[in-house]
Amino acid sequence: MVTLRPAAPGTSVVACNTCRHSAEAREDGAGARGGARLAAALRALQASDPAYAAVSVEEMPCLFACGDFCTVHLRAPGKVGYVLGRFAPGDDAARAILDYAARYAASETGQVPFNEWPAGVKGHFLTRTPPEGFVVA
């Protein structure tokens, strides 16, 4: 049974805290899941840098992107959403994700021009989801 809990309003990065560490390993050498490590890095960076004040970090078990690893869902009301994955869990990935999320938060529809994408998110987009009540034209 799924239990829903309220999340912060506005733009958020939802990290899968049960994701595999990598394509080859479920956990790292210390027994930690990659998703849990990535979620912790995202939370720490978001809390330490006012540049990310417009983006909340949430986490939940399993985004059902199990063919990939270290996945996040970027979402905001009325904006196109994205699922990104295949990150190495840590500070570099967290910074790239939050840098992109800050640009996403500032955008009107969720589309960030490619020339503004941080290098660390390129090649990590898995899906694009339309906002409720809309499809992309």
Results as ranks from 00 to 15, higher is better:
residue 23 A to V: 00
residue 36 A to Y: 02
residue 74 L to Q: 14
residue 112 V to P: 09
residue 124 H to R: 08
residue 117 W to E: 02
residue 62 C to M: 05
residue 38 L to P: 00
residue 25 A to V: 00
residue 84 L to V: 00
residue 80 V to P: 00
residue 35 G to Y: 01
residue 71 T to L: 04
residue 11 T to E: 09
residue 122 K to H: 04
residue 59 E to L: 05
residue 78 G to S: 03
residue 69 F to A: 00
residue 11 T to M: 07
residue 37 R to W: 01
residue 58 E to F: 06
residue 54 A to C: 08
residue 59 E to D: 15
residue 1 M to Q: 13
residue 3 T to A: 06
residue 23 A to R: 12
residue 107 S to Y: 08
residue 34 G to K: 01
residue 34 G to S: 05
residue 64 F to E: 14
residue 84 L to R: 10
residue 27 E to M: 08
residue 111 Q to L: 15
residue 42 L to H: 08
residue 132 E to A: 13
residue 105 A to V: 03
residue 45 L to R: 15
residue 130 P to N: 12
residue 102 A to N: 14
residue 37 R to E: 14
residue 40 A to S: 11
residue 64 F to A: 14
residue 97 I to S: 09
residue 74 L to H: 12
residue 61 P to Q: 05
residue 89 P to S: 01
residue 73 H to E: 14
residue 128 R to L: 03
residue 100 Y to K: 04
residue 10 G to I: 07
residue 24 E to G: 10
residue 15 A to W: 04
residue 68 D to H: 12
residue 124 H to L: 02
residue 82 Y to C: 08
residue 95 R to C: 05
residue 105 A to W: 04
residue 129 T to V: 12
residue 46 Q to T: 04
residue 58 E to V: 11
residue 60 M to Y: 02
residue 16 C to S: 13
residue 12 S to V: 12
residue 123 G to N: 04
residue 132 E to W: 03
residue 135 V to C: 09
residue 126 L to P: 01
residue 56 S to C: 07
residue 112 V to D: 06
residue 22 S to H: 03
residue 75 R to H: 08
residue 61 P to A: 06
residue 55 V to I: 15
residue 94 A to G: 08
residue 7 A to D: 11
residue 2 V to R: 05
residue 19 C to R: 00
residue 32 A to N: 15
residue 55 V to G: 10
residue 117 W to K: 06
residue 133 G to K: 06
residue 7 A to H: 07
residue 47 A to Y: 11
residue 6 P to M: 07
residue 50 P to S: 12
residue 77 P to N: 12
residue 136 V to G: 08
residue 51 A to L: 10
residue 110 G to L: 08
residue 87 F to K: 03
residue 104 Y to M: 12
residue 89 P to Q: 03
residue 4 L to C: 05
residue 19 C to Q: 01
residue 22 S to G: 12
residue 84 L to A: 09
residue 109 T to A: 13
residue 63 L to A: 05
residue 91 D to Y: 03
residue 137 A to T: 13
residue 46 Q to E: 13
residue 80 V to N: 06
residue 128 R to F: 00
residue 25 A to E: 04
residue 88 A to Q: 15
residue 51 A to F: 00
residue 117 W to G: 02
residue 103 R to Q: 12
residue 102 A to M: 11
residue 8 A to I: 04
residue 59 E to F: 04
residue 93 A to L: 04
residue 107 S to F: 09
residue 27 E to Q: 15
residue 120 G to Y: 09
residue 118 P to F: 07
residue 3 T to V: 12
residue 5 R to Y: 13
residue 101 A to Y: 04
residue 59 E to Q: 15
residue 29 G to V: 01
